[in-house]
Computed example of a mutant assay.
Amino acid sequence: MTWLDLCFLHWPVPPEALAPSLPPGLQLDLWQGQAWVGIVPFRMAGVAPRFSPDMPRVSAFPELNLRTYVTAQGVPGVWFYSLDAAQPLAVRLARRLFHLPYFDARMWVDRRGEITRYASMRTHRRAPEGHFAAAFRPVGPVFQAAGGTLEDWLTHRLALYSADRRGRLYRGQVHHDPWRLRRAEARIAENTLAAPLNLRLKGEPHLLYAQRTEVRADWLTPVRVSPEP
C-alpha cells in the first residue's frame, strides 16, 4: 500500500490517563516519563494483498487514526484506539482479520498546493462519536529523524498491536523506508476523537508531515502474555 499526505499531530499526556485502557501484556512506551497520543490523518492507495492488483473503489480511501505508543516483550509499537475510514469493506476486513478498531466514517479530503484540508465524521453504528476537521501543510526542508530524538521515537514504529474480543494480543510487523519528514503547521477546527478516553487534547500539538511512503504489512502473529504473578 501507499500512504499519502500524512500529518502527525501529537500531544503529551500523563501515563496514568492511558495505562488503564491497555489490554494485559502491553505497557506504555514513554518519552522522558511522558506518554503521547497521536492523531494521524492521511490517504491510503494501492491497498491490496501482495502480488494482487488494486481493486477499484476499494484500494484507495482516506484514513484517520488515534493512537498511543506501547511495548510488549521489548518490541515497541503502536496501539490504536480508533481508525476511521471511508471504505466500508476495508473497515469490515480490518476488524475481522486484524482485530483493529476500524469505524465507518464520512470523510472529505482536498489538497491544493501544499495545503491539505481534511474532515471526518464517524458514522459507525453504536460507535462513540468522533469528529475531526483540520487544515495542514508542510514547512521547511525534508529531513530524516536522527535516532534518539523525539521525532524518531514518535514515527519510527514498525509494529502494531491489536487484541481480539477475548483479549488475546497480536503483533503485526510493518515495513517501509525511513520517513522523509518535514515540519508542519495545522489549524484544527474540531477534534473529539479522544473524548471516549476522557482526554482533552489541549494546546498546540507537535507536528510533522510526510508526503508519501510505500508500505508492506505482514499478517498478525499471537503475542504470548505471561500470567500475572
Rank of each mutant, 00 (worst) to 15 (best):
A90T: 03
E129C: 14
T2Q: 09
A85G: 15
Q144Y: 10
H176L: 14
A217W: 01
P14K: 13
S82M: 03
A189F: 10
L83I: 15
S120V: 04
L207G: 01
V139C: 13
T2W: 07
N191L: 08
R171V: 15
E114W: 09
T213E: 13
A72C: 04
W31N: 03
R183D: 10
S226D: 02
L199N: 02
E214Y: 06
G147R: 15
R125S: 08
E214S: 06
L28S: 05
V78T: 13
R92V: 02
L83N: 13
G77Q: 10
T221V: 09
A127F: 11
M55D: 02
T116Q: 13
A17D: 12
P56E: 07
V215T: 10
R212C: 05
A159H: 12
H176K: 14
P141S: 14
R137F: 14
A105W: 00
L201Y: 01
P62S: 06
F51Y: 06
R187M: 10
E63W: 09
A163R: 10
R106P: 02
P15Y: 11
R182M: 10
L207H: 06
R157M: 14
E16L: 04
S21K: 07
L181T: 10
R95K: 11
L89C: 00
T213R: 15
L26C: 02
Q34P: 00
A163L: 04
